[in-house]
């Protein structure tokens, strides 16, 4: 999976950050067009199903996702009691998929949110801060954009040790730049707007002007990119877990399932790889559909003020 990820096509700096879905995910949606309504509904349904599966995991399966059973190793799908079969240690794959959804989706949402918050704050700061601070933030963003970020995330995760927090931090630290560049551009454009000048003329503090008058206006374009960041976070989490430096190995995750199943694939148990891989791909496509729809909606609505 890692090898198949295309090079990140974020380009440099602000030139490519605006307009349309960006090439940051391995799975991209072709033009949704007018028939997008069905796709959006399907994407919502798929994500709702995954979220429900994650939330209700303990009630949907009788198996413990980490309990090994030497009397039931490597069972094929459809075995009574094990709908998706078991892995080489006899752990129930259905249970591991359900509990894995918890890790993968939670990391996706939390890391996506952390990315957006970090990027918005840094971008907003860059827009209003004195030039040296602005230069520091934008040059750091440019430098990070020029690096293969999965390697950077791997380095962070490997050095800090695998934990939920590390994965979130590694993702946020390597994905905030597009958000920051958009926030900086939007806030910069808003700075000279009459109501911002009026607010300053009324004696409002710089912090107040930033949080109340500048950042809210920059949020619509950031919201459009936020969904992409969630999909990207799911992918990065899977990558890190696959490499064994993601969420701890005793916590099932979709990427971890792939890692476990690597050896089984050559012995004919393709499903052990196919099922988690399909879940990851489906989740990212669904998120991408929604992000694209949102992006288009925002672009069509245009600047209402």
């Amino acid at each position: 999976m890692v090898g198949r990820e295309p090079p990140r096509q974020r380009g440099t700096a602000a030139a490519t950050v605006r307009g349309g879905p960006r090439g940051l995910l391995a799975v991209r949606l072709p033009a949704a067009g007018r028939a997008g309504g069905a796709a959006i509904a399907a994407a919502c349904a798929a994500l709702a199903l995954m979220a429900a599966a994650a939330l209700l995991a303990p009630w949907l399966t009788a198996h413990d996702p980490v309990a090994t059973d030497t009397s039931a190793v490597s069972l094929p799908p459809g075995t009574p009691g094990h709908p998706l079969g078991t892995d080489a240690l006899g752990r129930d794959l259905a249970a591991r998929m359900l509990f894995g959804a918890r890790s993968s989706l939670l990391v996706g949402v939390v890391a996506g949110a952390a990315t957006v918050v970090l990027g918005t704050l840094l971008g907003g700061l860059a827009a209003v801060a004195p030039r040296p601070v602005d230069a520091l933030i934008t040059r750091t963003a440019d430098a990070l954009l020029a690096l293969p970020l999965v390697l950077v995330a791997m380095a962070i995760a490997a050095v800090a040790g695998s934990s939920f927090g590390t994965v979130v931090a590694a993702i946020a630290a390597t994905a905030w730049m597009p958000v920051a560049l958009i926030a900086r551009a939007e806030v910069g454009a808003l700075r000279e707007r009459p109501f911002v000048r009026a607010a300053r003329g009324l004696g409002l503090s710089r912090t107040r002007v930033l949080t109340r008058h500048l950042l809210p206006g920059a949020l619509p374009p950031i919201a459009a990119i936020a969904a992409f960041e969630v999909g990207h976070a799911v992918l990065t989490e899977s990558t890190l877990s696959f490499l064994g430096i993601g969420v701890p190995a005793n916590r099932p995750s979709w990427g971890g399932l792939l890692a476990d199943a690597r050896s089984q694939m050559l012995s004919g148990q393709w499903y052990a790889v196919a099922v988690p891989a399909a879940a990851i791909v489906a989740a990212i496509i669904a998120v991408n559909v929604l992000a694209t729809a949102f992006d288009r909606h925002a672009a069509a609505a245009g600047r209402t003020w």
């Binding site: 707007r193 009459p194 109501f195 000048r197 607010a199 003329g201 009324l202 008058h213 003020w305």
Partner: peptide
Amino acid sequence: RGARVGAVFQEAQAGLNPTVRVGGHFTET
């Protein structure tokens, strides 16, 4: 600013934040 020296600029409509209610402008000032 605001207390000793007030300023009103052209295009009053654009001088008010479109996402903030009239009352909000007064209370924050």
